[in-house]
Amino acid sequence: MFEATLQKASTLKKVIEAIKDLVTDGNIEVSETGMNLQAMDSSHVSLVSLVLHTDMFEHFRCDRNVTLGINLPNFAKILKCSGNDDSVTLKAQDDGENLAIVFESEGQERVSEFELKLMDIDAESLGIPDQDYNTNVKMSSAEFQRIVRDMTVLGDTCSIGCTKEGVKFSVSGDLGQGNITLRQTNSVDKEEEAVTIEMDEPVELNFALRYLGFFTKASPLCPRVTISMSPDVPIVVAYNVGGEKDTEGAGSLSFYLAPKIDE
């Protein structure tokens, strides 16, 4: 059987909220190392990879690997029933048909029990190579969300260009064009707002704003986002889960999107 308790139900709630609009059904693979979910959106344009290591759980027991086929919007509906400071326990029997979800308030005076029906999901799994990227930009996740939203006003494709000086987001559409440049700033008052750029060569790639917009729904998870790019390969937009700022969290939520190419 599988049983795991997360001290903050809100973390799981934010994770599922972040992906439920992009991916409807997904398999959460549970093993002794933790919980993982990999899924593509319905048009197979982007990929979500969620990794929750056992370290981030208060209690984690998994006797045998289990696959939990989950309808994410429905899971999100149940997670919304948790209180802000509740813990959450997930339980599933081997080959069980349901996922039990139990919320407990801090003083354990309120216990809520739910069951979510599991599904058989036929999803293909992809091997994501562990690669170094030409450019890694770390910035405020709220700022990235705002830029993507602002770019969407003007068009559907955004160019992200990066040099040592800064990162430039550009868009053009029927009503005009716009761009926003963020300069590399290591010495700002608020550490969370710093823009740091590690890069080998300047790079500029074009991305569909619709998908970047989906990715930024993960902003409440972490004040910082890491954007990694290399020529002709998918961009990675990554958020730490259950960690602080830039430090490695005990989990991560990464989104992959291929750059647009000229026909």
Binding site: H44, V45, V233, A258, K260
Partner: peptide
């Protein structure tokens, strides 16, 4: 005109 490649064309199937 730009084309959107599928993500599956970048990663190998497991």
């Amino acid at each position: 005109q730009q084309q959107q490649p599928k993500i599956s064309s970048f990663f190998n199937k497991k």
